[in-house]
């Protein structure tokens, strides 16, 4: 967590860092290739997406239709259904990520044996491609030969094999479980780094006062982690609300739209139904939701402000 923030207190000398007076504008030369490239691969496509959202596209021809795509999307029950699915998917996943990530970080922080090895191990689901993770879970959940049905049947929890991805309720539970499995390590890692910044003296003082484990957690750990947990949750919401790969691989949004989160609705509208205008409109609406959380994130962390001061 250190690299980006430790070196902002540069002594204010006229020469160093800000460059020689005669080369003041040279800095922009170093930035130019990146900025031009990003203009081409991000800004231009983004404008193109906005433009598409105001067009009706049939094959190669397109006509300007104003806000018709937005009206159509917002009048379509499928969009509101998808929004509700997203809301459920994101809130359950993020709450589970934070609770389990915190629990796991607290546990790892307590142990000294094999800590680094365990940390690497716990991070694997996050590092391996979501598409690959989802594929593995497809096999685990396979109705006839899948190992999860076998284990649950042997343990007497279920009496007959379940087609997990075949019915709406279990399909939603399944994709949410996989998202939780994938996302917990992210919160765990951030929390673990946060835990290590809490001064040991605070705990020592509390122990002298005879505080219980719960009291120490409630009055020292939690207040110290509050900022970090808020930031991490916001980032996690942004990551989960736009995530497509797991659902794309496992269900494609089905059955009966039960797992059709907004990115899945967007993909299906564009690439299955070939309605690019409406899909772009859904995308712009999704983007505006992401931006709300991005704005929250910026307010909390004040990213960028220290760079303006220099």
């Amino acid at each position: 967590m250190s690299n980006t923030t430790t070196t902002t207190n540069i002594p204010d000398r006229s020469w160093t860092g800000r460059g020689l007076a005669r080369e003041r504008w040279h800095g922009y030369l170093f930035l130019a290739p990146t900025l031009l490239f990003l203009a081409a691969v991000i800004v231009l496509p983004l404008f193109h997406a906005f433009w598409t959202s105001f067009q009706r596209i049939r094959g190669l021809s397109s006509t300007f239709v104003g806000f018709a795509n937005y009206v159509r999307v917002l009048e379509d029950e499928a969009f509101w259904h998808s929004l509700r699915v997203s809301l459920g998917f994101v809130s359950i996943s993020v709450v589970a990520h934070v609770l389990l990530g915190l629990l796991l970080a607290l546990a790892l922080n307590k142990i000294t044996f094999a800590r680094t090895a365990l940390r690497v191990l716990f991070l694997t689901p996050w590092m391996v491609a979501a598409a690959v993770g989802a594929t593995i879970w497809l096999w685990l959940l396979e109705p006839q030969f899948g190992v999860i049905n076998y284990i649950l049947q042997s343990a007497g929890i279920i009496s007959a094999p379940i087609a997990w991805l075949g019915t709406p309720g279990t399909a939603f539970a399944a994709v949410t479980t996989v998202e939780i499995w994938r996302g917990v390590p992210f919160i765990m890692l951030l929390t673990l780094a946060g835990l290590q910044t809490i001064p040991a003296e605070q705990y020592e003082a509390a122990e002298i006062d005879g505080a219980t484990t719960w009291q120490k957690f409630r009055h020292i750990t939690l207040p110290n982690l509050k900022y970090l947990l808020v930031v991490a949750s916001t980032l996690d919401i942004i990551n989960v609300v736009r995530h497509y790969d797991i659902i794309g691989i496992m269900t494609g949004g089905g059955p009966a739209g039960a797992t059709e989160v907004l990115p899945a609705l967007l993909y299906n509208t564009a690439f299955r139904a070939n309605r690019f205008g409406e899909a772009a409109a859904i995308g712009v609406l999704l983007l505006s939701m992401v931006l709300v959380f991005a704005a929250m994130y910026l307010r909390i962390t004040r990213v960028g402000q220290e760079d303006d001061r220099r």
Binding site: P45, Y244, P263, L287, V290
Partner: peptide
């Protein structure tokens, strides 16, 4: 933070 599903439309 951009949703990649939004960007794939113009990319495509």
């Amino acid at each position: 933070m951009l949703p990649e599903t939004l960007l794939i439309i113009p990319y495509f």
